[in-house]
Design a protein around this nucleic acid. Sequence first.
DNA 1: TTCTGGCACTCTCTCGATTCGAGTGCCAAG
DNA 2: CTTGGCACTCGAATCGAGAGAGTGCCAGAA
Lengths: 347, 347
Amino acid sequence: MSDERRLMVLRAIVQDYVHTSEPVGSRALVERHHLGVSAATVRNDMALLEEEGLIHAPHTSAGRVPTDAGYRVFVDRLSAIKPLSQGEKRAISQFLEGAVDLDDVVDRTVRLLASLTRQVAVVQYPSLTRSTVRHIELVPLGPRHLMVVLIVNTGRVEQRVIEIEPALSVAEGDAVVSRLRSSINEVASGVPFMAAATRLRALVDTADEADRPVLRTVVSALADALVEEREERVVLAGQSNLARAGSDFPRSIGPILEALEEHVVLLRLLGQLTDEPDLVSVRIGAENPVSGLQSTSLVSMGYGSGVERVASLGVLGPTRMDYPTTMASVRAVARYVSEILDQNSST
Amino acid sequence: MSDERRLMVLRAIVQDYVHTSEPVGSRALVERHHLGVSAATVRNDMALLEEEGLIHAPHTSAGRVPTDAGYRVFVDRLSAIKPLSQGEKRAISQFLEGAVDLDDVVDRTVRLLASLTRQVAVVQYPSLTRSTVRHIELVPLGPRHLMVVLIVNTGRVEQRVIEIEPALSVAEGDAVVSRLRSSINEVASGVPFMAAATRLRALVDTADEADRPVLRTVVSALADALVEEREERVVLAGQSNLARAGSDFPRSIGPILEALEEHVVLLRLLGQLTDEPDLVSVRIGAENPVSGLQSTSLVSMGYGSGVERVASLGVLGPTRMDYPTTMASVRAVARYVSEILDQNSST
DNA sequence: TTCTGGCACTCTCTCGATTCGAGTGCCAAG
DNA sequence: CTTGGCACTCGAATCGAGAGAGTGCCAGAA
């Protein structure tokens, strides 16, 4: 029995269903795809596919619809990522070139991804876990306040205003601050976050007795910023695309929108990627652990500067989506963003 | 003829309709509200209200529904902002207290507003137009690159990496940078944006001949950041609330979501507030110039530190909304955020 | 004048019955 | 193993009747 053909049939079903969004029957199938067999044969194959749980009939006499498992097989074995046209590639790079800073890169990326795929785009801010400190700046704002600015090699800037005790003297304030600035940068500049945090803590103990109280406050603010979970942010775009595809969702799109507002959950989801680099990951329907997103698929990929993955981006849409093209778009965008970030962080 | 009573009837209609979301008939009206008259009398009043264009019957024999104009009259003349309970106020201030920086304030505000009103919340980032420069920092990143960091009195930080020509010499680089840093801060620190931009440009001409090329680049980057329109950003939350109230929208919620993604348009909308401070502004249905938002109402108010309005925030929902409570929430949140910002910018 | 009760009328919504059609499952023959 | 044929099933669309809610209007009361 032709395993081969059965998979062809599955592929045809997925393609047609994605295209028409209506259950596809045996007759329509043989007409649209020139499988060399008759409708009856296809029906037999369909019965088998249904037994295997790859397709499913909404009711006795309607056509078949792929199940989550069916899409899974399709994605894993029956489709290749469709390469983008030259024009599309150019459009992507042009759109991203113009970004002025990290916020802008992220913003443009998410919009680009949404308009490219006509789905909901999700972009995680480059995470700090692998980042290094580029520079730390201390700015006195008066005798009792100091602004601590942490500049990250990804281009991100993090700042805190701290209150210091005792107050800086007018006479020595500036001198103290520049002393601290240089010793802090000496131990932390160019150092990865985790290491920087421990080194800084060590610095407190070896520092000049007089500087300790202030230094302690500064370091604790920095350590705080270094492990800051808030960094873990996501940006969304294209929510309106959900409404367009509204009929694809069994219940309303409400639960989906709700889930999308739970950024913490989204982050966890994006974090669960298989860690293989340069590989598009697809999570289909109920494979998705988040309630509310069980009728959606998430196509995502890591991106970041250099070889190490820094964060993830992706798109979310109905399980009935055009996987090959969506995957192509996600991959292309992830690569271009990585390039852009590379350029930025090497300057 | 009792003008008075007719307005009472209008108010009752609005209240009932907001409550039940179904057209309200004369019988139900006299039962729920103890107007001292009979249903027939109310019917006569309704006929008049309809002539005036304040209410409208979906079809011959259904109840009446307020028109946009009807809501307008209700908001302007028939309702008072319902004060929040002590507990709600406490909850608001507690929720906002914990914010660590400006991004966090905005983020918390928008979420708070969304969950408080159960509608879509919109918060504009504090605008720079009235802001002053708190400090400008130059950080050398190598011989040919310099990071310019602009710190604003609202707590916002803006940064740019620039390429300089000619390259800084290893020997003199640091000296040049600190010379520039101090002269720049001398003219720009504490100065409002517009003034700072012109002063900086003037500085280029009076500066030491040798420093000019670098200074020119720095100043142009700063001027760029100072007028930067990108500052004009909005943050949204609570989109899922649209789905919940989905039946209130004639067409789907798609167009609304689309409109919400056009941040530029939203900003214009928020900017069109009546400028009276401390006053909640309401734009109802078709009063709203944006296509796609014509079946929604926007309740907004300015906020900001000090007396001057810095930006706006608000909520967007179906025209059929509970105006008194929504207005109360918006006002309360706007006030608290202003307070928070006040505290921050005075440090 | 203004209000009220009564009554005929209109329109939507719901329900059930009927019909139609697409698609299946199965079978017997190629 | 494939194919054509055929009976069967079940949802979707159509139609009509009936119910119900609400109005508009009128004539009489206050």
